[in-house]
Structure formats: C-alpha cells, structure tokens
C-alpha cells in the first residue's frame, strides 16, 4: 500500500511529466489557450494513460522483455523481443485510442462531444508513449502499480496544463514585451513553474522514507533526473524565496 501512495505522489509532483521530463509539450503549448479546452484534453490524457500503461505493461511482461516468452514453453525462454517495444507500444496506443473513441461515442455522446476533437490527437501525444516507455525503463513491478503510474502521471499532466491555461488567460491583460508575447512568455512561465515544482523533490527524499523506495526503481532513473534530485534539496530554499 505504501508504495502505491508513494508512486502516486511521486508521479504527480516530483516526476511530473511536463515539468520534469517534458513529455507532451507540443499539445501542452498548443491547447493551453483556454481553461475549458485544457480540461478536456487533460481528462482525455488521464483516461488514455490509465488504459494504455497497464496494457503495455502486460505486453512488456509477457511478450517483449528478455525471457518473457517462457510461458510458451522452455524452447522460447531465450527470446528477447524488446527491440520491438516501440512499434508494439505505439500500435497498442493507436488502436486503444481508436477503440476508446468508438466506445465513448456509442455510450456517452456528451463525453464524446467534450473529448471528441482531442482523442485522435492523443495518439501522437508524447506523454502517452512516454508513459509507457518510462514504465518500461523504471521497471514497474506489478499491474496495479502500472495502473497507478498511468493514472497519476495523467493527473500530473492535467494539473500542469490546467495551471498554464489559467495563467495564460490572465496574462492577456498584462503588458508583455511584444516579441515575448504568446509562445515566448509561455516557455518562461513554464520554466518558472518547473522551478516551483522542483521544491516537491524534498518530499520523498527527506527523512527515513528513502529506504522504502525499491532499489530497482532507483537504479533505472536516468542520470539527468538523478542529478536533478540531488540539486533539488539545495534548490528548495532558493525557490521558496522566489515565490515570496
């Protein structure tokens, strides 16, 4: 249970898809002009991530990884199909998105109308593929954890796009230097928000909770992110000052 809670908060705040790993940046920038559309896209992302990450976890566990085919019989135990993971993951995602679209259209036309335009876009949203690839890279252990990871990173993405959309609605009334208007200022604000989110880094690294993180998960974190973590502790003070 504890690791579920930990993974949940870790994926929302510390490893936030937008602010820590820059996933789904394109749609994050393109669809964040209005809060209402941002909410629609965010909800669609949570939904699709919650479906595709567990599915891809099953694929990874029982077909792709080294020795995963051993359930077929001992002679298949040596196969390592992990080089196929890109194409299988993206195929699952594209099919699932199509399926979800059809099902939602059939059973809930009102939901379809609000998500409608965004669903096809999501197939090419890097947050979705990124979710599955990070799931593979971080070696998530059980199906439940994979589901949890999908939902919580979706929520993290949702929070990020909601926040930036709200800021962009307000910023229309401020006097931004002309060349920075639109895209430029959005980038810089996102940067500042990312600095703010770094302060969450101390949440799980402080105290004796560190010992509860499964070692396999820690080992797979990319060097860049690890570096970030060490620095975040030092960063907390600076960020707090800035936010004041």
């Amino acid at each position: 249970m504890l690791e579920h809670i930990e993974l949940f908060f870790k994926s929302i705040f510390i490893d936030n898809m937008v602010f820590a790993t820059f996933l789904g940046m394109c749609s994050y920038l393109a669809v964040s002009k209005k809060v209402s559309t941002a909410v629609g896209l965010g909800a669609a992302v949570i939904f699709v991530l919650a479906v595709t990450v567990p599915l891809n976890w099953l694929l990874d566990q029982y077909i792709l990884r080294d020795g995963a085919l051993s359930w077929l019989g001992p002679e298949y135990a040596d196969y390592d199909l992990s080089f196929l993971s890109f194409i299988l993951f993206i195929a699952t995602i594209a099919t699932m998105v199509q399926l979800v679209e059809i099902v939602v259209e059939k059973f809930s036309p009102s939901l379809y109308n609000s998500l409608g335009i965004f669903l096809p876009l999501i197939a090419v949203n890097c947050a979705i593929l990124g979710g599955s690839l990070f799931m593979q890279a971080r070696d998530i252990q059980t199906l439940g954890l994979a589901f949890n990871y999908g939902i919580s990173s979706g929520i993290g993405w949702f929070l990020a796009i909601l926040a930036i959309a709200a800021i962009r609605e307000k910023i229309r009334y401020s006097n931004v230097p002309a060349p920075l208007r639109g895209l430029g200022i959005t980038f810089i604000i996102t940067g500042l928000m990312a600095i703010g989110f770094m302060s969450f880094g101390g949440m799980l690294t402080g105290g004796d909770e560190e010992a509860t993180t499964p070692p396999a998960q820690q080992a797979e974190i990319t060097p860049e992110i690890e570096e970030e973590k060490e620095a975040t502790v030092a960063m907390v003070e600076i960020t707090n000052e800035k936010e004041k």
């Binding site: 790993t21 980038f187 940067g191 500042l192």
Partner: peptide, 23 residues
C-alpha cells in the same frame, strides 16, 4: 552555473531564443 543543467533552464533558454528571434 549548475542550474543550467536542470530542466527548467531549458525552457527558459528556449524562451530567450524566441525573444531574440522575434525581436
């Protein structure tokens, strides 16, 4: 400036590039 290696600075650098280009 170790801060340049962290993720937020990438965003800010892109923002500055956009600023220069549009100016």
């Amino acid at each position: 400036n170790g801060f340049m290696l962290l993720s937020p600075m990438a965003l800010i650098v892109v923002g500055l590039i956009i600023w220069v280009q549009r100016s």
